[in-house]
Design a protein around this nucleic acid. Sequence first.
DNA 1: ACGGTTCTGCACCGAACGGTACTTAAGTAA
DNA 2: TTACTTAAGTACCGTTCGGTGCAGAACCGT
Lengths: 193, 193
Amino acid sequence: MGRPRGFDIDQALERAMRVFWARGYEGASLAELTGAMGITKTSMYAAFGNKEQLFRKALQRYGAGPAAYVTRALEEPTARAVALAFLRGAVRTTTPPGGPSGCLTVQGALASSDESRAVHDLLVDWRNDAGVRLEGRFRRAVNEGDLPRNADPRRLARFIMTMGFGIAVQAANGLVPAELDEVVDTALLGWPA
Amino acid sequence: MGRPRGFDIDQALERAMRVFWARGYEGASLAELTGAMGITKTSMYAAFGNKEQLFRKALQRYGAGPAAYVTRALEEPTARAVALAFLRGAVRTTTPPGGPSGCLTVQGALASSDESRAVHDLLVDWRNDAGVRLEGRFRRAVNEGDLPRNADPRRLARFIMTMGFGIAVQAANGLVPAELDEVVDTALLGWPA
DNA sequence: ACGGTTCTGCACCGAACGGTACTTAAGTAA
DNA sequence: TTACTTAAGTACCGTTCGGTGCAGAACCGT
């Protein structure tokens, strides 16, 4: 009951996510956010709480949408296929034809003032969590004999995550998908047989 | 002639650099900058011009100081030694015992609002320039027979740069030097003989 | 038609932002 | 000592920041 919401909350969140993606958490002002969302500040506060909670919801949406390749990659049958799918996914997501370059979780708040330490730490956890999941998948691969017994799952996961982050920066630098795919191929040359 | 400056301009710039390094360009406020520099805003404007020019000077100092490993690495005798020195240097610089984690040129302004687009572009150029120099060094290595004739210098340079950027993000994520050195070793497993 | 509930738009809040005018202090050269 | 030059400190500029109070508008069940 009550007056119905006059805008599509999903579409508004999607647009907010893109602004955060392009500008980072602190670089995205409420004026630009609500402008892109097509609503007033009052409506944003009523629907999402405040700027930080809007970012948290946008990050959730990012994880379920553009960054879903992380979860999908883990389901590949072999460790090598996982690594390849992960990095190819990173390339695709960080170079969307019509969207912002780079990765929301990297450029969201790599460095920031003290007031947004909470968001900074949230993103650190997000990034580290992806590494932990990758490590678990590689550990399984060792147990399954898919990776050599002497392979170090944590080390491999950290390497792949490092490549993923590097790809995000290179995408923000203007590299195109074809160039980044070459980088991925080069990175996997030393992958354990 | 005139009243002499009451502070060490080099030391003030060094401190400003560290604030930019930790906070990013937009995240570093004039209040925090001048506080760390130990001077007032008036003195800062008289000595450096404005915030953007202060950042440009800080970036210069960063290139000549913490990031000097880039130039030093290029002087190594072989392509492999160059790559190794570059990445080891990135690890050391992004994990200083008493200083901010990460790389100033990466977290300075990866994403930002429109007003600091100039700084954003400056950093994009800075990062790309490092890649170009690396590419030139690898091209020389091919000519010298140090790298196989079919090696692609641009591709190798992009790969090493990607690793460097990834290391910067991982450092900001809290990884310690020993862990990052392992990542470097893993990355070089597929390096052309 | 009604009260109850929720959303919207406008005006506004105090604080912090980058940047500056102006006065005073501290030095040099004559 | 005086005139000149430059730095330092204070108090302030207009703007933007994230965030709200309040009145009215749009829906519900009765």
